[in-house]
Design a protein around this nucleic acid. Structure first.
Length: 860
RNA sequence: GCCGUCGUAGCUCAGUGGUAGAGCGCAUCCUUGGUAAGGCUGAGGUCGGGAGUUCAAUUCUCCCCGACGGCACCA
C-alpha cells in the first residue's frame, strides 16, 4: 500500500539514528589508521539568533562534501562553532539592556535548535564559541607568543574615530564619512594601536597564492591586488639649500616604479601629513590651510575620484639626482598618500596622469621622456593625456635610446653608483591594527605600569576574563570605566597598574579557530600533533565577502603560529581548498505606500500580486540578497516545518551553480517537494526481489543509465557543481519511472540496483529520504555509511552508436553503426541511407569526412 | 579607468569544433482509491551582435554590446 512520505516523522528518526551511531564523530589519528583524512569546514556563523537561507546553502554544500567523503572512506572532520564576539551584542546591550554574554548564549541556543532539524553531519562534540573564556584565554596566550616573537607591537596610526560613540571604527563601518551607528562625522585620529606584523609575510603571502590551485582565481587575484607588490626604486632627492624643518638630513626619499622617467621630473610632491609639510605648516598659514583643505575630502571612492588635484608650493627646492645643477620645486599635494611608500613622490607629468593634471593646474613643465613605439619624435607631444606605457627614452641624457625596461635598470644602477638609492619593493598591504575600544571582544593581555611601561600579563594569570557587569548606559568603552576591572598590580614591580582596556578585533578570533577544532580538549591553544594531522582544511566553504580580510588574516596567523613553534605547517597555508558560494536571493515587494512587504504578506492572483491585508496591488521589485531591511526573507525554519529539511537542502543545491546566487521561489520549493515525493514513490514501487541476470533490453538500458548517473553525480560533487548532480538525479528518476512499466529478463534486478544506487547518490543532498529509501529497499546498515558506488566504464555506453550524417555541414540523416565499425563501413552505411542519398542525387561527392564516434560529413 | 565572471527555451541552468539538452513553468489529453496528486504528449531556441579560421562554429580567434562582481589618486 502506497503511503505519503512524511518528512516530519522520518527526518527526526534518522537524525537520532545518526546520533546514536555517532557516525559524524571524527576519529583520532590513531583510530583512523590507513584512512585518508578530510577536513571539511564551512565558515562558522555569527550567532545572530536566527538561521537564514544563506546559512542553509552554505552548510548544505559543506554537508554534501563531508558526507561524500565519509562514503568514500575518509576520516572526516566536520566541526561547528560560533564566531561570537562583536558589535551586535553590544548594540543589543545599548538598545535593550541585554548583557552581551547572556544575549549571545541565548542566540547560540536558539540557532543550535534551528540547526538540528537540517540533519547536517556536524561533529558537535567539538563545538565552542569564541566568547568562551577557555577559547579566548588561549587566544591571549597566542597573543603573548606573538609579542615575544615581535609579531605584535604598538604603533601610532591613523584610525577612524567616532567622536559620539568614542570608539575606533573599522573602514567598513564608516559609511559616507559617517559612523554607521551614531551618524557622526568620522574623524581621523592618531591612536596607539596594537598591531600585527602581517607585512613581515607580505612576500610569502603573495607567492603562496600560486600554490593555492584549489582556490578561486578571483580570490587569489583579490588578495594579490590587496598585497599590492610594486618593484621599483627608493632614492633621495638632496636638498638644494638648507635641510627644511622636519626633513631627513640627506634629502627627500621617494619610491617609484618608473625610475626611467626621472628626466621628466618637474616637481617633488609630499603628502599633506608628511613630516616636512606638517613642520612647515607651523610657520606658514598657506600650507596650514592646504592641509586642512586636503583632509576635508570625503572618504568614499566617488569623493576621491572627483576630488581635484590640489597642492601648495612648500618654498624650497631639491637637486635632481642625475644633475645637481637642476633644481626642482617641492610641493605638497593632496593625491600623495602618506601611508604608501615614503609619503613622497616625484612628478613626471608626461608619464603619469595625476602628475600631468597637477602640472597643468600649477603650470609646471611637461617633458616627454618615453616615446611610444612607431611614433615620430619630432611631432610627438603630450597634451592632456599622459603616456604611461613603455617605449624608447628621449630627452633623457644617458638613457636616450634605451627601452623602458633597460632604462629602469640603468637608472637604478646610476642611483646606486651615486649612493642615492637602490632598487626596492613596496607593498600596499599594511600592518593590521587590532585594538578596539569595545567590551565584547578578547581582552588584550597587557598591563600599563608607570614604572615599567607596558608589560605582558604572565601566562599563569590567563585568561583575563571580561567582567560580567559592564555598564552600557553611556557611550564609550565599558571596560575603561568599569569600577574595578582594570585596576591591578604590575607583574614586574608589583605597584599599582592598569590593564589594557582595548579588546582584540574579532577577526583575531576567526584567524585560528580552524586549528582549535583539530583538538578542542587540549590545554594548549592548539594541539600540534592534531593540527599536523588535520590541517590544512581540505575544503573550506564560505562567502566571497571574506575573500580578503578573514582569509588573509588566517593565512598570516598560520605562518605566525608556525614561526612561534605552536604548529607545524611548513607551507603556512591553512586552507588547501576554498570555495566561495553565492547568495540566496528573492524578489522584493513594495506596497502602494512604498513600504517593503514580506513574501508572507502578499498573495498571487492571475499572475499579479496583492497585499493580503489591504487587497491593494503590490509592485514587484528587483531580485536581491535576502535581507531584513527589504523584508524579502524566507525563514528556513518555516520551510523545514512545511516541507522538511531535505526539500530545503535540495532546493538550495539545485538550480544555480554553487558559486552563483540562487533565487528562492515558492514554485521552486514546491518543485523540490514534488521531487522528494517522487523519490519516495519510486522506492515504494521497488520490486521485492531480484529476477535473475541482467541481459539486453530495458534492464541493460537501465543498468547503463545507472552507471552513467553514478559517474555524472560523482563528478558533479568532486567538481563542486552540485546543480549538475541534481539535474542528473532528476533524469535518473525519470528513467526509473519509465522502467516501472518495462518488462524483460532481469528488469527487477536492474531496478533494485538502480534504486539502491539512487538512495546512495541522493544521500549527500537529501540524507533523510535517502536513509528511508535505503531501509525500504533492504539496504544494509545506514546509507550514510555505505561505500560510494563506483561507475563501471564499460557499462556507461552501448555497443552501437547513432551517428548524424551531414551534407555540406547540415544534418540530413542519422545512421546506426556498430561501435567497432571501420571508416569504410561507416561511409557505406551513410551513403546507403535513403534520406542522405536523396541529397546526393546527380552530384559529385568531393570528400567524405568521418569522425569516428562523432559524425559523418559528405561534401558535394 | 583596470581586472575578473557571465550572456543557450518563459525561468534557473547543463553541454559541445560535428544530432541543441535538463528541471521548473506553459498547453492538450488521461487518471481521480499514490490526491497539499500522478501520468502521456506537445509547443517553445538565427546558443547576445558582427567578422575571421574550418568541409563544419553555439563551441576556437578578434572586435563590439549588455549584466554582475572586485579594485582604484598605490607613485
Amino acid at each position: 500500500m502506497a503511503t505519503r512520505y512524511n518528512a516530519r516523522e522520518v527526518e527526526p528518526k534518522w537524525q537520532k539514528a545518526w546520533d546514536d551511531a555517532k557516525v559524524f564523530e571524527a576519529k583520532s589519528p590513531s583510530e583512523a589508521g590507513d584512512m585518508p583524512k578530510a577536513y571539511v569546514l564551512e565558515m562558522f556563523p555569527y550567532p545572530s539568533g536566527r538561521l537564514h537561507m544563506g546559512h542553509v546553502r552554505n552548510y548544505a554544500m559543506g554537508d554534501v562534501v563531508a558526507r561524500f567523503h565519509k562514503s568514500k572512506g575518509y576520516n572526516v572532520l566536520h566541526p561547528m562553532g560560533w564566531d561570537a564576539f562583536g558589535m551586535p551584542a553590544e548594540n543589543a546591550a545599548m538598545e535593550k539592556g541585554a548583557q552581551p554574554g547572556i544575549w549571545t548564549h541565548e542566540n547560540i541556543d536558539a540557532m543550535k535548535e534551528q540547526f538540528a532539524p537540517l540533519g547536517l553531519s556536524f561533529d558537535w562534540n567539538r563545538e565552542f564559541a569564541t566568547c568562551d573564556a577557555e577559547y579566548y584565554g588561549h587566544q591571549q596566550k597566542i597573543f603573548l607568543k606573538f609579542w615575544e616573537n615581535d609579531l605584535v607591537f604598538r604603533k601610532k596610526s591613523k584610525v577612524n574615530w567616532d567622536p559620539v560613540d568614542n570608539t575606533v571604527l573599522a573602514n567598513e563601518q564608516v559609511i559616507d564619512g559617517k559612523g554607521w551607528r551614531s551618524g557622526a562625522e568620522v574623524e581621523q585620529k592618531e591612536l596607539e594601536q596594537w598591531t600585527m606584523k602581517i607585512t613581515k609575510y607580505a612576500d610569502d603571502l603573495l607567492s603562496g597564492l600560486q600554490n593555492l590551485d584549489k582556490w578561486p582565481e578571483k580570490v587569489r587575484t583579490m588578495q594579490a591586488n590587496w598585497i599590492g607588490k610594486s618593484i621599483g626604486a627608493t632614492f633621495k632627492w638632496p636638498y638644494a639649500g638648507d635641510v627644511p624643518a622636519g626633513g631627513d638630513e640627506n634629502g627627500i626619499e621617494v619610491f617609484t616604479t618608473r625610475p626611467d622617467t626621472l628626466f621628466g621630473a618637474s616637481f617633488v610632491a609630499l603628502a599633506p601629513d608628511h613630516p616636512i609639510t606638517k613642520e612647515l605648516a607651523k610657520t606658514n598659514t598657506k600650507i596650514a590651510e592646504f592641509i586642512v583643505e586636503a583632509a576635508k575630502g570625503g572618504t568614499t571612492e566617488e569623493a576621491i575620484e572627483k576630488a581635484p588635484k590640489l597642492g601648495v608650493d612648500l618654498g624650497f627646492k631639491v637637486k635632481h639626482p642625475f644633475n645637481p645643477d637642476w633644481k626642482i620645486p617641492v610641493w605638497s599635494a593632496n593625491f600623495v598618500l602618506s601611508t604608501y611608500g615614503s609619503g613622497a613622490v616625484f612628478g613626471s607629468p608626461a608619464g603619469d596622469q595625476r602628475d600631468l593634471d597637477f602640472a597643468r593646474k600649477y603650470d609646471l613643465p611637461v617633458i616627454p621622456v618615453v616615446l611610444p613605439t612607431n611614433t615620430d619624435e619630432a611631432s610627438y607631444s603630450i597634451e592632456n593625456e599622459a603616456y604611461t606605457g613603455n617605449g624608447t627614452l628621449i630627452n633623457s641624457e644617458f638613457l636616450n635610446g634605451m627601452d623602458s625596461n633597460g632604462a629602469i635598470k640603468a637608472a637604478i644602477a646610476k642611483l646606486e653608483e651615486l649612493g642615492l638609492g637602490t632598487s626596492s619593493t613596496t607593498y600596499r598591504l599594511r600592518d593590521w591594527g587590532i585594538s578596539r575600544q569595545r567590551y565584547w571582544g578578547c581582552p588584550i593581555p597587557a598591563i600599563r605600569c608607570d614604572n615599567c611601561g607596558v608589560v605582558p600579563v604572565p601566562e599563569d594569570q590567563l585568561p583575563i576574563e571580561l567582567p560580567e557587569d559592564p555598564d552600557f548606559s553611556e557611550p564609550g568603552n565599558p571596560l575603561d570605566r568599569h569600577p574595578t576591572w582594570k585596576h591591578t598590580s604590575c607583574p614586574k614591580c608589583g605597584k599599582d597598574a592598569v590593564r589594557e582596556t582595548d579588546t582584540m578585533d574579532t577577526f583575531m578570533d576567526s584567524s585560528w579557530y580552524f586549528a582549535r577544532f583539530c583538538d578542542t580538549q587540549t590545554g594548549e591553544p592548539v594541539n600540534k600533533e592534531a593540527v599536523g594531522y588535520w590541517l590544512p582544511v581540505d575544503q573550506y566553504i564560505g562567502g566571497v565577502e571574506h575573500a580578503i580580510l578573514h582569509l588573509l588574516y588566517s593565512r598570516f596567523f598560520t605562518r605566525a603560529l608556525h614561526d612561534c613553534d605552536l604548529i607545524d605547517l611548513p607551507n603556512g597555508e591553512p586552507f588547501a581548498g576554498l570555495f566561495t558560494q553565492g547568495m540566496v536571493t528573492h524578489e522584493t515587494y513594495k506596497s502602494l505606500k512604498g513600504q517593503w512587504l514580506s513574501p508572507d504578506d502578499i498573495d498571487e492572483k492571475d499572475g499579479s500580486y496583492f497585499e493580503i491585508a489591504t487587497g491593494e496591488p503590490v509592485s514587484v521589485g528587483s531580485i536581491e540578497k535576502m535581507s531584513k531591511s527589504k523584508k524579502n526573507v524566507v525563514d528556513p525554519s518555516v520551510i523545514i516545518g512545511d516541507y522538511g529539511a531535505d526539500v530545503a537542502r535540495w532546493f538550495v543545491l539545485s538550480d544555480s551553480p554553487p558559486e552563483r546566487d540562487v533565487e528562492w521561489t515558492q514554485s521552486g520549493a514546491e518543485g523540490s517537494w514534488k521531487f522528494i515525493q517522487k523519490l519516495w514513490s519510486l522506492a515504494e514501487a521497488a520490486p521485492s526481489d531480484d529476477d535473475g541476470e541482467i541481459k539486453d533490453g530495458p534492464a541493460m538500458d537501465l543498468l547503463r543509465t545507472t552507471h552513467k548517473t553514478i559517474d555524472g553525480v560523482t563528478r558533479g560533487i568532486t567538481e563542486f557543481r552540485f546543480n549538475t548532480s541534481v539535474a542528473q538525479i532528476h533524469e535518473f528518476a525519470n528513467a526509473l519511472k519509465k522502467a516501472e512499466n518495462a518488462k524483460g529478463p532481469g528488469i527487477a534486478t536492474a531496478r533494485r540496483f538502480a534504486l539502491k544506487t539512487l538512495a546512495q547518490l541522493i544521500s549527500p543532498f537529501a540524507p533523510h529520504i535517502a536513509e528511508e529509501s535505503w531501509a525500504t529497499l533492504g539496504g544494509e546498515g545506514l546509507v550514510t555509511l555505505a561505500p560510494w558506488p563506483i561507475a563501471d566504464e564499460k557499462l556507461m555506453s552501448s555497443d552501437t552508436l547513432t551517428l548524424p550524417v551531414q551534407v555540406n555541414g547540415k544534418k540530413r540523416g542519422e545512421i546506426q553503426v556498430d561501435k567497432s565499425a571501420s571508416k569504410e563501413d561507416v561511409e557505406k552505411i551513410a551513403l546507403a541511407d535513403p534520406k542522405v542519398s536523396s541529397f546526393l542525387a546527380d552530384t559529385q561527392i568531393k570528400k567524405i569526412i568521418v569522425v569516428p564516434g562523432r559524425i559523418v560529413n559528405i561534401v558535394i
